[in-house]
Design a protein around this nucleic acid. Sequence first.
DNA 1: CTCGATTACCTAACAGTGTTTATTTAAGCG
DNA 2: CGCTTAAATAAACACTGTTAGGTAATCGAG
Lengths: 238, 238
Amino acid sequence: MAKKTWKPQGQQGAGHAKPRRKRLSPEERRAQIVAAARALFAAEGIDHVSMRKIARRVGITQAAIYQHFENKEAIFFVIIEGFFGELLAALEAAVASESEPLHRLRRAMRAYIEHGLSRPEEYRLVFMTPMSGLARAGLAVPRTDEARHAPSKGSLSFDVLDGAVRDVVLAGRTRYADADLLAEAVWAAGHGLVSLLITHDKFPWTDRARLVDFQLDLIFRGLLQEGCPMRQRPFIHN
Amino acid sequence: MAKKTWKPQGQQGAGHAKPRRKRLSPEERRAQIVAAARALFAAEGIDHVSMRKIARRVGITQAAIYQHFENKEAIFFVIIEGFFGELLAALEAAVASESEPLHRLRRAMRAYIEHGLSRPEEYRLVFMTPMSGLARAGLAVPRTDEARHAPSKGSLSFDVLDGAVRDVVLAGRTRYADADLLAEAVWAAGHGLVSLLITHDKFPWTDRARLVDFQLDLIFRGLLQEGCPMRQRPFIHN
DNA sequence: CTCGATTACCTAACAGTGTTTATTTAAGCG
DNA sequence: CGCTTAAATAAACACTGTTAGGTAATCGAG
């Protein structure tokens, strides 16, 4: 359970020769375990990370982990929180860097795609696994009051995207009126690309970078308002 | 290995009271095993189907399965083949039902999406699992000579989509010239929708059917040639 | 400094997994 | 009938996540 905090206040003895069992503070051990899990996880894939492997890497026995985490899931949950935290930061940075609604949304989508491609294993866990991190991270029910009170980084991330889409709609830059529908479709298109590239990294994709650009272009041309000046000239990449 | 064929030619004895161990022909057993696996698999999800469970459902021991299949994977491989077979049929039917290139591609994409949504667990296995069915089914390397000689249903399915896209390009109905790139982007957009709907079926999607229509519309508006007459009127659903 | 409480860590075991081995036995053929 | 083939078995392997119970390291209180 590890509820009450406790600290070993330094290496006081300073000698101790060979302490058979090193005792660490819960915070330190937790951090070690998460770090080990994250590393193994990215290196060997979700399925091949066992509690034994994590424990071995940390230098403790598998059972010791249960002193600090209720579950194997619980470990991955904090990894997911980190993933969402950085996703949210990336999205907010993208949104803040541009004031024109369309370009802002495009930047956000690019940030989303690049974040996913840079953390394939975590992306897979969060967005491609049944009963996945999304549900546990509270994104699955973002519009309930309950989730509103304690919004997770996951739901906040989606809110950023949703807000960017909403701004595009309000600015009259798209032919579509339903912001929710548009947000979901845009998300799906971006997710599809990330998802396919992650799962089929051996597939002879013509060119990943070009494909990302192309996909963004396809989506944004699709949603543009008829007669919008941006239609006339090739889209600017960002 | 089960290479040589063998048949028990009927229930000749007709009596036999209680044969402790029933012997079946390899074909029958294989079919039983696959059927059991497919059922469990769709009902309980990929991860929760064990060899023991499959065997129990068939009425044999787990080890007996290895007489007929090399692997657990091998069982799922034949399931995947079935999935691809039906996907291919659906795509070919869609393509055959329409001569206008754009509408034909749209029909094909719709068929793809609906096929995926109707078989979520198999879709997940094929398109969302690391080292997935795609690679094993030969789709991952569709443009090599090797794969050309023995084209799988998987690669043929992609070829149908690719061909439909190519026709759109050749007919001058899109602003894009690179058919490969366009095919991949269109596929990714469709896949993203299927993938998200499957994984996050609790997500408060505004409306699945509407979302599918919307996504198709978004993609097709994006790829349309400037000045194409279809631009002026709302897209026809099919 | 000692006493007691707390608790990080350990060993050992549980039930489950995919897979392999050696064995049994049902079926078909000469 | 015997002989061969191979489908099915029981038993075990090494692995998985998880739990129970004991050991000992570290703390605060006296």
